[in-house]
Write a protein that binds this DNA or RNA. Structure first.
Lengths: 115, 115
DNA sequence: CAAGCATATAATGATATGCTTATATACGCA
DNA sequence: TGCGTATATAAGCATATCATTATATGCTTG
């Protein structure tokens, strides 16, 4: 028998639809292990800043991510308290780590660190 | 450490995008435990036959489902040999069983059985 | 306060999606 | 062979999605 908590089908499809975009899916995988700010994503995805901002807004609207302003920057992180977090997590764990993107950022001196 | 086989991000997002539609997601969950033919889906989803047919084609195009003609009917079933089946399975197991739909079909005498 | 960087929002346009209706194809049976 | 049922395909349309550019807002610092 299985004691998994299940996710309502409507809600599940809404989540999967949002994750069904390569940019957002990669964002989520990255955020699983690193906090990132908007400008880091712009550098990683080589995409316009508004495009990044809009993707992040969608993720935030359904509370998959949290945002926090620190001075000039806005940092995003995974919301581990999301009602469906176990579901999300089980998806993300099937995806390859995205450490190269972060490493590349650091190599280019583009990684933002505010203590 | 984790020994999970990972799914390439592009491919994963393509899969999630297809599953990010409530009709197709429900279809997959149903197919996980029951073979179904097209006309059964039409009855379950109360949607036009071409609409159903088009959803099934999308699922079949990326080989998530197999089809098999039996006389007049075309039956669909889950493709357990799909390269990313473990990934798919881990998603489906978070979804509630859809047994009522099937029970309802049977109650209405609409369940197709061809031994 | 003005300038500069980071981010958000608005408006717009190209393309994708998901349905509909109309029609074609396939099978079973009288 | 011809009709009825099941399914597939095509064409058309409304809406959604995802990018872009232009502009607004917010913070930091001289």
């Amino acid at each position: 028998m299985n004691t998994l908590v299940t996710v309502d089908l409507q809600r599940a499809s809404r989540l999967l639809k949002l994750l069904g975009d390569p940019t957002r899916l990669t964002m989520m995988k990255l955020l699983k292990s690193h906090e990132c700010c908007v400008c880091e994503f712009v550098a990683i995805f080589k995409m316009s800043q508004p495009a990044i901002s809009q993707h992040l807004r969608k993720l935030r609207d359904i509370e998959l991510v949290k945002e926090e302003r620190r001075g000039q920057w806005v940092f995003f992180s995974i919301n581990e308290n999301h009602e469906d977090y176990p579901f999300i997590q089980s998806i993300l764990e099937h995806l390859p780590e995205q450490n190269e993107s972060i490493a590349e950022l650091e190599a280019q001196g583009l990684r933002i660190c505010c203590e």
